[in-house]
Write a protein that binds this DNA or RNA. Structure first.
Length: 554
RNA sequence: UGGGUCAUGGUGUAAUCGGUAACACAGCAGAUUUUGGUUCUGUUAUUCAGGGUUCGAGUCCUUGUGACCCAACCA
């Protein structure tokens, strides 16, 4: 119910704690209010974690409410994906509700406003309205329709609702103050005519409430105590309060926080759509997309995203959180939880010349050194092996700890080998390595006294299986692509590398959708839904931290 | 006649309503390591500017500067 007194609270938590302490509320109720007009992205994820997180932290609850007041942009498909994204993140709404549930109530309340002389039907065109609205530095002018009597307005509003006017013919506006310094308060639109099919109410309505007429009242109807939104809605708060005051209904309160952006990502719906439609990515759930479904397919865990949202904190100033923090969070989670497996992405054949032709040795290695209880798994060792091309260099740079001519290296959980001969084709390409192994260097019973500097992963040619591996990198090359004049130009041309014929441990062929692994020394990988019984596909979620890559780049 | 929101290391967030500017990520250096992973240790770097109040200011006052939002029949 209450929080630890020694931990520092963010400004919203302080407000809530004070409201609870003063007895203003016994329980808090928040809400996550997406418009179902697209897929959720990482920005929404932070809002979900915020709203639901607050509900959980203070023993309250959180509604999922679809702000479906614009029938021309909204679809059931989006409703479904949003519900599943929220649940995937690990939250269960107290209620799943819709602004459209309140259309009748909202309509009745509009009539109350009209009767009280606080709203009028305006036949001005949008152009005329814009002119009369003034500018931030110049006052507006009253509409010629502003002094129509309540009786007349009521009749006109009923006609609007009855479908007697075409789209755009007139609107219902609140009568507030055309001289207000707050542009939002200069007689805002409450209803507009749209003869459109609504994904839930069908054709029963041809007038639809605007955001400002729907949101606060929806909050109030649900008894939302803390209605949390982003900074750009701050000027709307005055209108939010005005509407509630006019109706004398439960006073929900709006609080604003700064949208939480993430570097190297984009969260504009328009731009995300462009990426999909221009086939720059494959789909909305392409693992490079900053959508929740993209992160899911990429292999991110819900816990890692929640942890990220916790760690970036909350404020009221514009911010861009570091993508590297998100990467830290997923590595931290997966390091503890994922089983280790060997995979060789770019194979180089190694022949152990002093190892018997047909002999297969059975070795073991740990599933996860961070979690010994996960036990060991079997590994086959034979005369022919695969290692990573990167793990051999004919002329190694300084500090290179891997294999080179005449040098030794430890094959993890197996033997130490020495490179005796480099085989090449006519073009000079390395085709295979001839090595010898040190029989007394077997892992766990090493009496060789040798101390190779490097340890590399490997696969036995006798049982390695082929799989497809997709390596993802950042989609954008700049930290803040949204700020670029042409964000498409900043796209990383190497954001996806497909390796059709990678080699993996045989056990990986039984992996199932949702499984996550660490491919030893390579990174964290998950099973992609494109996988089939005969062709497994793995996505790289994130690389391991790679200090050698940094060192060698110097 | 403009209104609103904000300003603390590279990034993000704190600082018990005036009392040693801290935590995390990133970076750098080292130790450990049969993953160049993990773990551990150390380290670099911060209060937008000017003025004022005060023994003492990130915090209070004042004057500036800068950033973002608002003039959709979108949310």
């Amino acid at each position: 119910m209450s929080t630890n007194s020694n931990e520092s609270l963010n400004f919203l938590e302080e407000i809530i704690e004070a409201d609870l302490a003063s007895g203003k509320y016994k329980h808090i109720l928040t809400r996550f209010p997406p418009e179902p007009n697209g897929y959720l992205h990482i920005g929404h994820a932070t809002s979900i974690c915020l709203n639901f997180g607050l509900g959980v932290k203070f023993g309250g609850a959180t509604n999922l409410r679809f702000d479906d007041t614009n029938p021309t942009t909204e679809e059931t498909e989006y409703v479904d994906s949003i519900i599943s994204d929220v649940r995937w993140l690990g939250f269960e709404p107290a209620q799943i509700v819709y602004a459209s549930d309140y259309f009748v109530q909202l309509f009745e309340w509009a009539k109350v406003l009209i009767q009280n002389g606080k709203a009028y039907v305006d036949f001005s065109t949008s152009q005329e309205m814009a002119t009369l609205k003034g500018t931030p530095t110049e006052p507006g002018k009253n509409s010629p329709y502003r002094d129509t009597t309540p009786e007349e307005n009521l009749a006109l509003f009923e006609k609007m609702r009855a479908g007697e006017f075409p789209d755009g013919h007139c609107t219902l506006r609140a009568k507030i103050d055309m001289n207000s310094p707050n542009m939002i308060m200069r007689d805002p639109l409450l209803y507009r005519i749209k003869h459109a099919h609504h994904h839930r109410t069908g054709n029963t309505w041809c007038i639809y409430p605007m955001y400002d007429w729907a949101h606060g009242q929806s909050d109030s109807l649900e008894n939302i105590t803390h209605s949390i939104c982003t900074l750009e809605f701050a000027p709307h708060r005055e209108l939010y309060d005005w509407c509630i005051a006019q109706l004398g209904i439960f006073p929900s309160h709006q609080y604003e926080f700064a949208r939480r952006n993430v570097s190297y990502a984009i969260t504009s719906k328009r731009k995300l759509r462009q990426l999909v439609e221009d086939n720059i990515v494959r789909s909305w759930d392409d693992p490079r997309m900053p959508t929740i479904s993209g992160f899911r397919r990429r292999g991110y865990t819900p816990a890692s995203i929640r942890e990220f949202c916790d760690r970036i904190g909350l404020g009221k100033r514009e911010m861009v959180a570091d993508m590297s923090l998100l990467e830290f969070c997923i590595r931290e989670d997966l390091n503890k939880s994922s089983l280790r497996r060997f995979a060789v992405l770019h194979p180089l054949k190694v022949v152990i010349t002093n190892y018997p032709e047909a002999q297969i040795d059975h070795l073991e290695t740990e599933n996860n050194p961070e979690a010994p209880e996960t036990g060991l798994r079997p590994l086959s060792f034979g005369r022919e092996l695969w290692i990573e091309q990167d793990d051999f260099m004919e002329t190694p740079p300084p500090k290179y700890n891997r294999l080179s001519p005449g040098g030794i290296v430890r094959l993890k959980s197996a033997y130490i080998i020495r490179c005796e001969e480099v085989m090449k084709d006519d073009a000079g390409n390395i085709t295979e390595l001839h090595c010898t192994y040190i029989p007394e260097s077997r892992s766990g019973q090493d009496t060789s006294g040798l101390k190779p500097k490097g340890v590399i992963h490997w696969l036995s040619a006798s049982d390695a299986m082929i799989a497809e591996v997709r390596l993802y990198d950042r989609l954008f090359q700049v930290e803040d692509p949204a700020r670029e004049e042409d964000f498409i130009a900043t796209i990383n041309p190497n954001s996806l590398q497909v390796i059709e014929n990678a080699l993996v441990e045989p056990a990986l062929m039984q992996a199932e959708l949702g499984d996550r692994f660490q491919f030893t020394r390579l990174g964290y990988f998950c099973v992609d839904p494109d996988s089939s019984a005969d062709k497994m596909v793995f996505n790289r979620t994130v690389t391991l931290k790679d200090t050698w890559a940094k060192e060698s780049a110097k």
